[in-house]
Structure formats: structure tokens, C-alpha cells
Design a protein around this nucleic acid. Structure first.
Lengths: 138, 138
DNA sequence: ACAATCCCTACCTTTTTAGTCAACTTTCGC
DNA sequence: GCGAAAGTTGACTAAAAAGGTAGGGATTGT
């Protein structure tokens, strides 16, 4: 079981955006720097997140990104689906007629539900709980 | 989330072995044919399963494979670990200091436990329940 | 105007997956 | 003992996916 770099970076980026006040925009460059993500790669990812409606952008000189919806509406599953297309689809070579097919389906469903149960808001809460205060300010 | 061909084939092979009486040996060729697995590839996989103590082989003219331990002791997790080496290790780029790290650990643990909770015996039981009787006989 | 920033398409590189091959060893049946 | 059937091994290759780059165009603030 491994998380792809895309998904990993996507989650980190959204997580960081969620820690900034809603009113301010964060530039890709900043996100890339603080999370140690290759800028050009991150740009690709942000586009996907934008298309999926989780992030909104402003172009131009003082442009940047911010969340397009409340952090509580963004789950890990949603992020992963946005950048990977088909996280939810488990693919095995077994035929639907085989007993194993159903077993995989069950396991997959549980897994996706679990990923869907964790929101970015949860992450922020956990961080506050574990580390006291958030770092980013206006 | 996707199962590798190796893991998929390994599970199918063991599953088929589990459906044969303990006393008889099944040849790699037979397994390959009935499960539609490339023979040479299956041979690789069987070696891994043997090393992991799940299968035992007899060489020579009337050789073949059989389970090396009761089906109830073989879980999906065990098979996957045998052929993939590190299924259980979730790798993300987040640092251990990040809140996400713990979250991934939790999810991974649940997932692995789930895979560990399903044994080949369970599969056989399900098959009997769903399809009535097993196909393979002496 | 121009610099900073986001956007889009295409491409490249590395790693992993999936599968093959040839040669070798062991065992069985005679 | 001998040949055939079967398992064993390690090296090899092709294809796909992951990870990342590059160039250029579009927008906006100053």
C-alpha cells in the first residue's frame, strides 16, 4: 500500500491552505517551498484540485490559491480521487464470478469509506490538539 | 488501490490448492491452466510462497504443490506480504513530525488488519456457501 | 508596459510491473 | 543407471506508470 506523490502533495497543499485564514491567497511558489514540492509538479496538481472544485485561484501578479469550500467538506478520499482519477476502483484480475471478487469489493469499500471519513478539518483539529497553535497568520 | 498481478495470482493459486484434498499434489502447469496464469510467471510466485512456508513442493516426475499449512493459517495479508515484500509498509513523503503521518499509520494498520482477518479457509467456506459444492476431487 | 503569477500541452526520465528465457537440478518410473 | 518430467534459479526485456520538466500562452497588479 503506497500513496502516490501526487496524492501526497495534493493533501499537503490543501492541508496548508486550510491552515491559512480564508481571506488570504497563498501562491504556488510558497506552497512548494514550505512543503518541499517541485513547483512545476505542484502546479499540475493544483490545476486538478481546481477542476475538482476544492481550490480556487486568482491569476496575475498578486495571484494565488485558497480553498474553494469549507475544509470539512474535503476528505482524503476526495483529494485522492481528484488527482488519481480512480482511487476508488480496485482492480484485480479475478472474474466477477469468483468468490474473491466480492471480498475485494468489500475491502475496497471499507477502505474508501475510511478515507472519506477523514476531512482536512479533522487534520487541522488534530494539529491544533497536538501542537497547540497554528503557525500561519496574516 | 490496486492489487498487483503477483498478489492476485498468488491468492488464486493458494485458493485453488486449498480446494484440493490435502493428500494430492497439483502441478504448476495445472494451476496455470485453470487460473489462466502464465506458467513461467506462476513458477516465480510459487517459489516465493514456498519460501514463505505456505506451500510445499515435490519435484520429479509425479511432482506438484500442496499447502504447507492449514488454510486457516493463511491470510490474504500473509500471501501479499510473501510476494510483495512490504505490503504492510505504507510510504508517504510526510515527515513523522506531521499530523498526517499518524493518520496514515492508523489507516494502514486497519487495512492490514483487515487483510489479515481473511483467511483462505474463509474463501473456501464462502465458495461452498455461495456455490454449493467444490469442484475439485481425487 | 512589464513583471509576477497562473494555465495548458507536450515531453522526458526513472522505477515498477509483468512476463520470458535458457540452463540447471532433482526425482520418478522403468 | 538412465531418460523424461518436473521444479529451480537468475538474468533479461518490454511495457506501463510514476514522477517530474519545459516552453509558451493568458491574466492581472503596479
Amino acid at each position: 500500500m503506497k500513496i502516490t506523490a501526487r496524492a501526497d502533495y495534493a493533501i499537503l497543499a490543501i492541508f496548508e491552505l486550510a491552515q491559512h485564514p480564508e481571506t488570504i491567497r497563498v501562491q504556488a511558489r510558497e506552497l512548494a517551498k514550505s512543503q518541499e514540492i517541485p513547483l512545476r509538479f505542484l502546479e499540475q496538481i493544483l490545476i486538478q484540485l481546481k477542476k475538482a472544485g476544492m481550490v480556487e485561484s486568482v491569476r496575475g501578479a498578486a495571484g494565488g490559491y485558497k480553498l474553494a469550500c469549507p475544509a470539512r467538506e474535503i476528505s482524503l478520499a476526495r483529494i485522492m480521487e481528484a488527482v488519481e482519477g480512480d482511487v476508488t476502483l480496485l482492480d484485480s484480475r479475478v472474474k466477477p464470478s469468483c468468490v474473491l471478487y466480492k471480498v475485494w469489493q468489500e475491502i475496497e469499500q471499507e477502505f474508501v469509506e475510511r478515507l472519506g471519513s477523514i476531512t482536512v478539518e479533522d487534520l487541522v483539529r488534530r494539529k491544533i490538539r497536538d501542537e497547540g497553535v497554528l503557525v500561519y497568520h496574516i
